[in-house]
């Protein structure tokens, strides 16, 4: 077969196109493979998750929130516009809008639901981030790399749970009367800087030291159970097996890993 220069260039061009298309195809097919692997035990053997027992959760108690925000130097700007939060309470109707009706009983109506990043199996925030500043770790934690975040806030638009906060101003600053936004800095954890997005990190820094998340540790009612779903005899698996649980906005296909006992 004789190949002249024109043919050679054509073939070469097509080949290059194929190589260029491969990562796109990989990316597009990733969603499905994650779904398939989730059912039958993921490779890597870890799938961290949390179960919150709302029946044990006491009205007016903010132990988990305080512990989290103290541990992670989460600032308090005293106004809803600039607000930054990792973990907070929402009324039942706002946390589970699909499950709301006039006659909700069991003390749930209007009751507080502890909400945080859902560490989704199929996180939309990771899908939209243009720099991989937010990414999903192999053990399921959806992490933020504050060094890389450009502050475009695409992830905030993409998150269907409102779990993400932006640093509209310097979290290390102070208000007009000189009160610092971070009441007492925890030297063991960094603060953030102006112009980056932040959220719950499932206490990755504590897990590395063999500790459970700060919220779970702080809860006196033992309403928060944390563990690895891939471990058959783990406490999370036990609790999920013996209780009826729901997740927030399951219809969106994000596969949240925070489960609620209601």
């Amino acid at each position: 077969m004789k190949i002249d220069r024109r043919d050679f260039l054509k073939i070469g061009g097509l080949g290059a196109l194929g190589i260029a298309a491969k990562p796109v195809i990989n990316v597009l097919s990733k969603g499905e493979s994650a779904e398939a692997s989730h059912g039958g035990g993921a490779v890597g053997g870890k799938r961290l998750a949390m179960v919150v027992d709302l029946k044990k959760c006491k009205e007016g108690c903010t132990d988990c929130i305080d512990a989290c925000h103290k541990a992670h130097n989460v600032p308090d700007f005293h106004n809803p516009k600039d607000e930054v939060k990792w973990l907070w309470n929402e009324p039942y109707e706002k946390a589970f809008p699909e499950q709301e009706h006039e006659w909700v009983g069991g003390g749930m109506k209007g009751g507080p639901v502890m909400v945080l990043c859902n560490h989704c199996d199929n996180p939309p925030c990771v899908r939209v981030c243009p720099t991989k500043a937010t990414f999903r770790r192999e053990d399921g934690i959806v992490m933020m790399d504050y060094h890389r975040c450009i502050g475009c806030r695409f992830c905030m638009a993409a998150c269907p749970y409102g779990s993400r906060s932006f640093n509209w101003r310097n979290p290390r600053g102070c208000d007009a009367s000189g009160n610092t936004f971070i009441e007492k800095q925890n030297p063991g954890f960094p603060t953030r800087t102006t112009g980056v997005v932040e959220k719950c990190n499932f206490c990755a820094e504590r897990l590395a030291k063999g500790l459970i998340p700060a919220c779970a540790e702080a809860c006196k009612e033992n309403a928060i159970v944390f563990g690895d779903l891939e471990e058959a005899d783990s406490e999370v698996r036990e609790v999920l097996h013996s209780n009826y649980t729901i997740r927030r906005k399951p219809g969106l296909g994000t596969r949240p890993q925070i489960y609620y006992i209601v």
């Binding site: 504050y146 290390r172 800095q185 030297p187 954890f189 960094p190 603060t191 800087t193």
Partner: peptide, 10 residues
Amino acid sequence: PTCWDCHVIP
């Protein structure tokens, strides 16, 4: 360097 914008100086 921007290290100290976030990391706490002991």
